[in-house]
């Protein structure tokens, strides 16, 4: 098992009630492992406390990256949320302790 933090960096973005999380392989050779072991369902489960909507996954092999598009951020996004982190900018880092199973 290897932690996501060991293999990848994350970048969180926000647009209204959507949070985007890009997961980038530090070394491109690890992209296939990310693509195999980090499905949208695992990300959705980890973000469940702060999300009300579905998570979609986009694969970007040329960039060595996965992009997760996460709908329904708790509080509704930056404009009228009562959340402390109304954007959801801290959420991507919640993924970093996910353990990925190597085959």
């Amino acid at each position: 098992m290897r932690s996501l933090r060991e293999l990848a960096v994350v970048r969180t973005g926000d647009k209204g009630a959507l949070v985007t999380v890009a997961v980038l392989a530090r070394n491109p050779v690890d992209y296939p492992l990310l693509a195999r072991a980090l499905p949208a369902s695992v990300v959705a489960a980890r973000l469940a406390p702060v999300l009300t909507g579905p998570v979609r996954r986009h694969e970007l092999p040329l960039l060595g990256a996965l992009l997760f598009s996460c709908a329904g951020v708790r509080g509704g996004g930056v404009s009228s949320s009562t959340e402390l982190d109304a954007h959801g900018k801290t959420y991507g880092h919640l993924l970093l302790d996910i353990e990925l199973e190597e085959r």
Binding site: V9, R11, G13, D14, K15, L18, T20, A22, L24, R26, H58, L60, L63, G64, A65, L67, S69
Partner: peptide, 16 residues
Amino acid sequence: RLTVTAQLLYEVDDPA
């Protein structure tokens, strides 16, 4: 590569 790729995908919903 990493800082640029991170920003390339920043706030993107559908990369296609």
